[in-house]
């Protein structure tokens, strides 16, 4: 497993644990209304589990397991994958912090955060596709 896959998959696991914890707290709050402010973390729960966990885990595993480019085991240029790792996690962080920060500061100028996150997500998926495209080949090709 290449180092970049370790980063992807371990980050995905951490976000799974954190996202599940937020989800658990949301359920308890739904039952007992002990901490209404936790609802500001619902977008973080969704983003961490959809993008931070499932998408990130799939990307990390794909980079590890897709066919190599040659018999020497070369995976090609991994720089786009590192870029994808940084911007994907930046995107999740931006969306996750947006609602809690807005609830805390009550400022509208934080609207740039989800916009920048969308750009980060698009860049991440583009970079992953750029790397993986050549490795999606028929067996023996």
């Amino acid at each position: 497993m290449p180092r970049v896959s370790l980063f992807f998959i371990r980050s995905a696991l951490l976000q799974f644990g954190i996202g599940a914890t937020i989800g658990g707290l949301l359920l308890i709050e739904k039952g007992f209304s002990f901490w209404p402010a936790i609802w500001a973390w619902r977008p973080a729960h969704i983003q961490m589990l959809l993008l931070g966990w499932i998408v990130q885990f799939a990307c990390g595993t794909a980079i590890w397991i897709l066919p190599r480019l040659n018999a020497a085991g070369d995976r090609g240029d991994l720089r786009p994958v590192w870029l994808a790792y940084v911007v994907l996690n930046s995107g999740v962080l931006l969306v996750s912090l947006h609602a809690p920060l807005r609830a805390f500061t009550l400022d509208a100028w934080l609207g740039w955060m989800p916009l920048l996150a969308v750009f980060c997500y698009a860049l991440a998926i583009g970079a992953i596709a750029l790397h993986a495209w050549r490795r999606v080949v028929a067996f023996g090709a």
């Binding site: 497993m1 290449p2 180092r3 896959s5 370790l6 998959i9 371990r10 696991l13 951490l14 799974f16 644990g17 996202g19 599940a20 914890t21 989800g23 658990g24 707290l25 949301l26 359920l27 308890i28 739904k30 039952g31 007992f32």
Partner: peptide
């Protein structure tokens, strides 16, 4: 139903971190 939701929330947290603990050491280079 509130108490069941409390149980559900707790179980989901246990499940999440349990899977993290089970998988984490397997994410490694040969």
């Amino acid at each position: 139903s509130a108490w069941l939701l409390l149980g559900t929330g707790g179980l989901e947290v246990v499940a999440g971190w349990g899977l993290v603990i089970a998988i984490w050491p397997r994410v490694r280079q040969r």
